[in-house]
Design a protein around this nucleic acid. Sequence first.
DNA 1: TGCGGATATTCTGCATACAGAGCACAGAAT
DNA 2: ATTCTGTGCTCTGTATGCAGAATATCCGCA
Lengths: 228, 228
Amino acid sequence: MSSSTVTVETTPAPALPIARQSLHDQVVTRLRDMVTDGRLAPGQRVNEVALCAGLGVSRTPLREALKTLAGEGLLELVPSRGAVVRSFTDKDVADCMMVLKALEQLAGRLLCQVASDAAIAGLLALHAEMQARYAVRDRLPYFKLNQAIHSGIVAAADNAPLLRAHEALQAQMKRIRFIGHEGPEKWAAAMAEHEEMAAALAKRDGEALAEVIGRHHDRGLARIRDVI
Amino acid sequence: MSSSTVTVETTPAPALPIARQSLHDQVVTRLRDMVTDGRLAPGQRVNEVALCAGLGVSRTPLREALKTLAGEGLLELVPSRGAVVRSFTDKDVADCMMVLKALEQLAGRLLCQVASDAAIAGLLALHAEMQARYAVRDRLPYFKLNQAIHSGIVAAADNAPLLRAHEALQAQMKRIRFIGHEGPEKWAAAMAEHEEMAAALAKRDGEALAEVIGRHHDRGLARIRDVI
DNA sequence: TGCGGATATTCTGCATACAGAGCACAGAAT
DNA sequence: ATTCTGTGCTCTGTATGCAGAATATCCGCA
């Protein structure tokens, strides 16, 4: 695809790194999307050759991508039967949310100590943007901004292993949250919690932030529970 | 190697699952061991063909194993340069320990609520065994029992995602802990903390257990810090 | 008609082959 | 002497081929 790399390099100054990503990475992101948006349904067996044809790649990079996604917990590898899209029980979801809660609480406490003012301002800006989307009930942008805020909180904590673990779990839950379109009153409650989070963030009050995040997750679990 | 799988199947009764593991899995565990015991040194580039020769497998399963281990955070995949054994900075270690601490604290609280008496008894038995090994200063068994106890606490919490995240992080830290042979007084302190943990465990006091675990990790980080 | 077993087919797991990228070394020009 | 460039080699990334396991199909038989 992008095998013809541009090698002009006239600019000596900012040296932009030319995104160049391998087939493997591209396949990984494509498959991740296919899992989260449901084109690969939970419980479904993944046929390698069919997918290869669809993606236009050979089996080797595809298989390597499957291993990667299995490592992230999105797929399960059954010996001699290949990859199966992981399906989540009620308990799995609750368990994931519990861990996610603990990680984000930790992140909240950390970021209040270590984050730069600019980073906090950035998060508050995301919040304001989400607020605006909520005002006009614009679901998809709201959803994406919501995810970005939660990811951003963890990223601002400046703890790589924490970020990795959180990303993996969030990817697993992404599909669940995606289908979980909550009603107006639940949505309002979630938004109110985000207001509280923003307030705690602005004050750099780590304990308060952790407390709200905990409540947000507990209620979030309750919100999606009747959807499943 | 073991490509000839035994297919006799004379026992119909308890349906034992016949360990049959793929080459991929075997290679993964072998490589994990090689990273933790230092035969693959941090920062070292992994030469695929050389490793293939050493393990007696072809590049395909090896490469798939490399992807898996990269997903676990033990290796780093550099485009066009292959896999590199991940090397940890001081901060990386501290960050990992922080996350590990949060996860084990969560596990401690959970297990006090949900674990069976038998599970707790099992953990206490491991503790007693470790006590015995400490009494005669038998380092390696002590080390392994220590790991087993920490893993066992998380396993007893009955939360699969929590267990997965913990295992990955513990694998990353295993080598650090392995080389970090602490002096007698630090060792005694660590053992004393384990005594406290066992006491809290016996009483199913989740809060107390979480508190000790937190202290144990904080002090553990301090203990290994001057080793690095 | 229902069931058991042999056979055929499909698909995974692994090995190998090939092409391109990165890197080192050497030679030439300034 | 130093730097730049060209060439060759090594190693990764990807494709393809082959063998074995799992499953589906179909036929025979009760």
